[in-house]
Structure formats: structure tokens, C-alpha cells
Amino acid sequence: MVNEPMATLIVLASLTLAGALAAMWLRNLVHCALALAVSLAGLAAVYLQLDAQFVGFAQLLVYVGAVAILIVFAILLTRGSEPHPQPILSSTWLVGAGVAVAVFAVFAWGILSSKAVKQEAAPAPATTVAQLGNQLMTHYILPLEVLGLLLTSALIGAVLIAMQERRPR
């Protein structure tokens, strides 16, 4: 008999993993982007279940809202939604799948054999958004400013890279 949080986790985990598998498996690129959105929304629900409300909603806003839309734009701009007859897997896909399975095997062995991860959950910490904001504005002010600078430069860089180059006469 599984307890209630574990049952919720199983439902959310199967949603997340099914979305991720579909995003990597499907042929149509638009379907892949939508499956990615489903997977990221499932992960946001997992964050909510872990009492990290702010991260859950930030995940919804940034990933499901912005990154998924960005990927759909890129697919449409590169005409990836049109069907094409080439194979979708690269010629060395067997090596790639083998590496992924090996990495998962090592992770699973480490997780299941380690004594450090045996503890059960402590009672939920009462984190409020006000606390997070206080921390961001006091202790983490320098990383916050650096992140703002990084996002600005990434935005300008992305526009410059994707801008139509002027033809030399």
C-alpha cells in the first residue's frame, strides 16, 4: 500500500516522463515541443508537491510560458514542421542510447546504494515569497545583478546572431 504523497508522485512522475519520452521520440517537431511543455508542467507540479511553490510557478512562467513558445517559434522559422523523409536518428544513435543507459545505471546504483539519501521528509518549511525576496535583495544581491546582466547580454546576443545580415555590395 503506497501512501498518498507517493501515489501523487507516481502520477506526476509518469506524466513528466511520458512527456519527456514523447519529446524525444516523436517525428513531428511541433508535437515534440508540445510534449516538452507537458513534461515541464508535470515537473512544475512536482516542485509544488515538494513545497517549493515559488520555483513551481517560476517554472510554469519561464519554461512552459517562454521557452516552449521560443522553441515553437524556432521550429516555425526553420520550417521544421514540414515533414521530411530523412531518418530522425543520427547514424551513431546506438552509441548515444548506450551512453544514456550507462549513465542512468550509474545514477540508479548510486542513489539506491547510498546511505546519505535514506532520510524521510522533515515537516514542510514555511517559506514565503517575502522571505525569498528578502534573501534575494540582501544576501544574494550580487548573483541577482550578475544574472540580470547575463540575461541582457544574452538577449542582445541572440538578436544579433539571428538578425538578417546585410549583403555586401
Binding site: T16, L17, L29, W93, G96
Partner: peptide
């Protein structure tokens, strides 16, 4: 599992967006 699925997709698919 999520990491392994992402790694498999990044190594095995042809399309740069995937």
C-alpha cells in the same frame, strides 16, 4: 531518468532543435 532521456535525445536525434 529525466536526465537519461534528455541525454539519449541529445545524442541520438539529428535535428538541432530536438
Amino acid at each position: 531518468l529525466l536526465f537519461a532521456i534528455g541525454l539519449a535525445g541529445a545524442l541520438a536525434r539529428r535535428n538541432a532543435i530536438i
